[in-house]
Amino acid sequence: MNSSLTFARMESLPHKNVCHEPTYRELFYAHARHVRNFLCYKGAATTEAEDLMQEAFLRLWRDCAKVPVEKVKSYLFAVSGNLFLDEKKHEQVVLKFQRQAPSEEATEENPHFDLETKELQDRLEKAIAQLPENQRIVFLMNRMDKLKYAEIAERLDLSVKAVEKRMHLALMELRQILKGI
């Protein structure tokens, strides 16, 4: 069965073509996580996000002859974003994060740090869910996925300046929301 062949060969990389399976596979490995996370930031639950991500990639495969490699990123984010909109109205954003102490030195310096940080993380989780969607997406793509502003701009089809503005606003907004929680 073909699916057991999880082995990518790169001989034919020079002619980058999305329809070429190894290229497609590479694109999947490069972007699947970010697309899935993006959907979570929009408010999808993890399983839903993963299903929609898969669906977006299936469409990419179907459209592979029409999408040049350099457009794949914006294609994936646009398609998966639309799929999510089509899904249903999403009233409440429930974003859950996995936690850990930010750094070990901090705990040594201050034994109360753990508890305080945990409490702050709880509040942050709620505050992030309350951010306007545009800001939340940009903010988390930068903070969670470690994408640079230019990379976010490319994916979301925005100017770098627009990304920076949203980022700036997100930080101010977060601080305000946190004060009220």
């Binding site: 996370n37 979570c40 993890t46 859950k96 994060f97 996995q98 936690r99 850990q100 102490a101 930010p102 750094s103 901090a106 940080t117 702050l120 993380q121 942050l124 989780e125 903070r143 969670m144 996925d145």
Partner: peptide, 9 residues
């Protein structure tokens, strides 16, 4: 700083 200890699933 607190955010640094938060990750996506």
């Amino acid at each position: 700083h607190a955010l640094e200890g938060m990750e996506m699933e």
